[in-house]
Computed example of a mutant assay.
Amino acid sequence: MSDLPTTAYKVLTADQMAALERDGRFAGAAIDLQDGYIHMSTAAQLTETVDKHFAGQSDLHVVAVDLGSFGASLKWEESRGGQLFPHLYGPLLLETVIAYAPMSRGEDGIIRLPVTG
């Protein structure tokens, strides 16, 4: 599985982003807590995730996460359309975040990724 991305993305509301910055950790949104893991997406999956799960919402943030930090608490599991998605079985820690920014779209409608390193 070495061809899997080393960075994933989590969409947070402004309140969730503020809590991550304040507390240094994010336990998950309601759907994450219900499912027992934090849902994340690869760069290629992010726009579809936003369109499907965050349609009509504003004041969102995109957080880039270093997947190498999680070890066994990160699992790649089949989900939407048979694609493998990164699922984090534990809190998202601020120290694993490599970049974040308010969510925006390019002229092509694709979600812009936060600039890393």
Rank of each mutant, 00 (worst) to 15 (best):
I110P: 00
G90R: 02
V65D: 04
D66M: 04
A30E: 10
Q57K: 15
R80D: 10
S79P: 00
T49I: 06
E95W: 03
G68T: 13
D66R: 12
P114T: 07
V62P: 08
V63K: 06
Q45D: 11
L67W: 09
D15F: 00
V63G: 13
R80I: 13
A30Y: 03
L33W: 01
A19R: 03
D3W: 03
L60G: 15
T7F: 00
L93A: 12
P86R: 06
S41I: 05
R22T: 10
F54K: 12
K75I: 09
M103N: 05
Q83N: 12
K10T: 11
V115A: 13
P102W: 03
A64Q: 06
E95Y: 09
D59G: 14
A8M: 02
D32K: 05
G117R: 10
T13V: 05
Q83K: 12
V11S: 03
Q83E: 14
L4G: 07
L20M: 07
L88Q: 07
G24W: 01
R22F: 01
T47I: 07
D3V: 11
Y9Q: 07
L94V: 07
M103V: 09
H53F: 13
D15R: 01
A72Q: 08
R105M: 07
T6A: 11
E78C: 09
A27H: 05
G82V: 09
L4A: 14
P114S: 03
M40C: 14
T7R: 01
T96H: 10
I31A: 14
Y37R: 11
P114V: 06
E77T: 15
S79V: 03
S79A: 14
A43F: 00
A19D: 02
D59M: 04
L84Y: 08
E107Y: 01
D35P: 00
D66S: 14
L4E: 09
M40H: 06
D35G: 01
T116Q: 07
Y9I: 06
M103D: 03
V11D: 01
H39A: 12
L94M: 10
A19M: 02
V63E: 06
L88Y: 05
L88H: 06
F85M: 10
V62Q: 04
S79Q: 08
A30N: 08
A72W: 00
P114Q: 03
L12M: 09
A29G: 15
D51S: 13
V50H: 03
M103H: 05
I110L: 04
A27T: 13
A30V: 15
T49G: 09
S104H: 08
S41V: 09
T6N: 08
P86S: 12
P91K: 01
H87P: 02
V63D: 08
V65Q: 07
P86K: 07
Q45P: 06
D35V: 00
L74S: 12
D108R: 05
A18H: 02
T42V: 07
M1L: 06
A8N: 02
G109I: 05
L84P: 07
